[in-house]
Design a protein around this nucleic acid. Structure first.
Lengths: 202, 202
DNA sequence: GTCTATAACGGGATAGAC
DNA sequence: GTCTATCCCGTTATAGAC
């Protein structure tokens, strides 16, 4: 539904797009507090006036960038889950997804930014992404239980929360050690436990 | 080995102590980037000149505060582990330790601060704390295996990394939701899995 | 040890010209 | 839409008096 002729006026607000992409990158790397409007403008190759034309404030731009990142992540997960049919397969796919471990999670990172957590508008997309992800994982587990693939004694939501937590915490211990191995071992650890409670094959 | 008369000169550099405590609190709440020297001075009720007399820079004070926090945390864990005798007991004690979940981990938090991770001196105590904690947990698990309490097929270090990660990630999902329940469920999730692989009683 | 003054710079935004 | 100028305040010190 993307109609090219609707934006035929000039080279267009391609600047808006570059600003969002730059803000995404800087929010990932340095967080909200650590990212100045000037730094975003520089990375986006967009002037001061231009940025404040497209966005009311640093906060407004951050909101657009966060929503964009959350949507992109959700797309990734949907793709991941669609390619698998069992609960174990879906969880394993999530745990082994390609990641830039030492850079951390683009969304989970925001959780440590008081200016973001203290702002309902900015926290909302972060909260929503984790909520959807956990619900999706819990659903896969419950479905696995209905089909007798997964130990029925497990609580789907608790396992889902644990799976998401182990990934988020994996980033933390990897960064602390400045080494991706702790992350890899944590993933191996959960999977070794989950493997005792779930069938691997469909 | 604390000799009171060694500091009998005046009311002494009680200011130094207050600065460290204030820096610990602010580093916890706002991180390194989010904490200005002025804010620390105000919380510590210590003047500008005084702070720069006791510490060379913001970084110097932060180092002292981080080392202090890491040592305090390690003391907590030693106490926790000393009170338990089984691998399951020790892990459960760690997972259920009293925590201010929505405030997050005083040490894990620092992991998201590029200025801290990019500074070897500041990262060192963070790295060291997690390394010791993981080693201690892995040791407890290996010991449990030697005594036949724990499934010998598990890799102690992977399980230890996973246990630490789930706590660190638990903070993340709790903050995102602005609710302690996700943390509690994640802990319940790991414990329900670990309970299938370890004996609870000594 | 602690105080006040000062400085050089960056952050976050507004104003109005083009 | 984008540019430049301008503003005010906060950050991170340093200097020297008390």
């Amino acid at each position: 539904m993307y109609i090219e002729c609707m934006r035929a006026t000039t080279h267009d607000s391609d600047a808006r797009e570059r600003l969002i992409k730059a803000a995404q990158a800087l929010l990932w790397e340095r967080g909200f507090m650590g990212t100045s409007p000037a730094a975003i403008q520089q990375m986006a190759e967009v002037g001061q006036g231009s940025m404040y034309h497209h966005f009311k404030s640093k906060e407004g731009l951050a909101l657009a960038a966060i929503e964009r990142s959350a949507n992109e992540r959700w797309g990734d997960y949907e793709t991941l889950f669609a390619a698998e049919s069992t609960a174990y397969g879906r969880i394993a796919a999530y745990l082994h997804a390609e990641r830039d471990v030492l850079r951390g999670c683009r969304i989970g990172r925001l959780t440590q930014d008081p200016d973001i957590m203290g702002n309902e508008a900015l926290r909302a997309p972060v909260d929503a992404l984790f909520a959807r992800l956990k619900a999706r994982l819990a659903e896969a587990i419950a479905q696995g239980q209905a089909q007798g693939e997964v130990n029925a004694a497990l609580d789907p939501l608790s396992i889902a929360e644990m799976v998401v937590a182990v990934v988020q915490g994996g980033y933390v211990i990897a960064k602390a050690a400045n080494d991706t191995q702790p992350f890899a071992r944590a993933m191996a650890g959960v999977l070794s436990l989950l493997g005792t409670q779930m069938k691997r094959a469909p």
